[in-house]
Computed example of a mutant assay.
Amino acid sequence: MAVRQWIEGWPVYRQLTGQDPLGRGAAVTSEHTRHLRARTEQADKVVRSICPYCAVGCGQKVYVKDGRVTQIEGDPDSPISRGRLCPKGSASKQLVTSPSRVTTVLYRRPHGTDWERIPLDRAMEMVADRVLATRRETWQDEEDGKVTRRTMGIASLGGATLDNEENYLMKKLYTAMGAVQIENQARI
């Protein structure tokens, strides 16, 4: 490459001699940067979501290509965060796509001494079966001649990281199951 070609290819030279004296457009654009494309351009679909980290509930746009998450950004249409995410929220993609993400559940059988890995689907089925069995075994239709229709065998203690919507849905779920001990850590 000749010296003259090198100088003319230099962004400062193009800025000072061209139509872009502030260096905000063509003067600072190289051949390489002209061919760059945003990762979000190639997404098959964009799914709106909520950041899972805290109770603020910042909106996220999740970009998906070929069934895999390619990028997660703040949702500018979110009235809560207006497109902004904290450092943890900005790193949400790692939560979803990390190769070290835990996808199994550790389970120790009753009276067992060792943990075994079981699939998440199986663990969810076990929890559902136990909830239904507990409800069935502890159900009270009436007590002292009064209609109660409740179970005293199930209780809920929500965490402070849950947002209002999640707590509302948990309250509805547990009330529908007949539980009466429904509390939240944030209120205690």
Score class of each variant (00 low, 15 high):
residue 26 A to I: 15
residue 33 T to G: 02
residue 121 D to K: 01
residue 103 T to W: 01
residue 130 R to Y: 10
residue 46 V to D: 13
residue 180 V to K: 15
residue 26 A to C: 14
residue 47 V to D: 12
residue 174 Y to R: 03
residue 106 L to C: 03
residue 32 H to G: 04
residue 161 T to E: 05
residue 89 G to Y: 05
residue 43 A to Q: 00
residue 46 V to Y: 06
residue 141 D to V: 11
residue 113 T to I: 08
residue 34 R to G: 13
residue 118 I to S: 04
residue 172 K to R: 14
residue 112 G to A: 12
residue 167 N to Q: 14
residue 112 G to D: 09
residue 129 D to W: 11
residue 7 I to E: 06
residue 114 D to M: 13
residue 118 I to Q: 07
residue 70 T to L: 09
residue 124 M to D: 08
residue 145 G to P: 04
residue 80 I to L: 15
residue 106 L to W: 11
residue 171 K to G: 12
residue 105 V to P: 01
residue 137 E to F: 05
residue 4 R to G: 07
residue 43 A to E: 00
residue 146 K to A: 09
residue 176 A to S: 14
residue 96 V to R: 01
residue 72 I to G: 00
residue 107 Y to T: 09
residue 109 R to H: 13
residue 52 P to I: 01
residue 22 L to Q: 13
residue 12 V to P: 04
residue 54 C to A: 00
residue 102 V to K: 10
residue 75 D to R: 00
residue 187 R to H: 06
residue 59 G to F: 02
residue 184 N to W: 07
residue 17 T to A: 09
residue 168 Y to P: 00
residue 13 Y to R: 10
residue 119 P to I: 04
residue 21 P to L: 04
residue 24 R to L: 15
residue 94 Q to Y: 12
residue 90 S to H: 10
residue 131 V to W: 02
residue 151 T to K: 02
residue 105 V to K: 02
residue 52 P to R: 00
residue 58 C to E: 05
residue 111 H to E: 15
residue 75 D to H: 07
residue 112 G to N: 08
residue 41 E to G: 07
residue 158 G to D: 00
residue 114 D to V: 14
residue 66 D to N: 05
residue 67 G to K: 00
residue 4 R to K: 06
residue 120 L to M: 08
residue 175 T to N: 03
residue 44 D to P: 02
residue 98 S to G: 05
residue 64 V to Q: 06
residue 57 G to T: 02
residue 44 D to K: 02
residue 102 V to G: 03
residue 176 A to D: 09
residue 145 G to Y: 06
residue 41 E to L: 14
residue 61 K to D: 14
residue 53 Y to Q: 00
residue 167 N to S: 15
residue 188 I to W: 00
residue 61 K to G: 04
residue 36 L to Q: 15
residue 184 N to P: 00
residue 151 T to R: 07
residue 24 R to P: 07
residue 117 R to W: 03
residue 90 S to Y: 09
residue 2 A to Q: 08
residue 168 Y to H: 05
residue 43 A to D: 01
residue 19 Q to T: 12
residue 156 S to C: 14
residue 87 P to D: 06
residue 69 V to R: 01
residue 141 D to T: 14
residue 145 G to W: 04
residue 138 T to C: 03
residue 2 A to C: 05
residue 160 A to L: 01
residue 82 R to K: 15
residue 94 Q to D: 10
residue 18 G to V: 10
residue 146 K to M: 11
residue 72 I to Q: 00
residue 105 V to Q: 03
residue 183 E to S: 07
residue 115 W to P: 12
residue 122 R to P: 01
residue 93 K to N: 08
residue 132 L to N: 12
residue 126 M to F: 12
residue 125 E to W: 08
residue 34 R to P: 11
residue 123 A to F: 06
residue 118 I to A: 07
residue 10 W to V: 11
residue 32 H to F: 04
residue 131 V to Y: 05
residue 8 E to D: 11
residue 123 A to D: 06
residue 16 L to F: 11
residue 106 L to F: 10
residue 26 A to Y: 14
residue 39 R to Y: 11
residue 110 P to W: 08
residue 150 R to A: 04
residue 173 L to P: 07
residue 149 R to V: 03
residue 49 S to W: 03
residue 28 V to S: 05
residue 157 L to S: 11
residue 148 T to N: 09
residue 41 E to A: 14
residue 130 R to V: 14
residue 158 G to N: 03
residue 97 T to C: 08
residue 116 E to M: 04
residue 145 G to A: 13
residue 14 R to P: 00
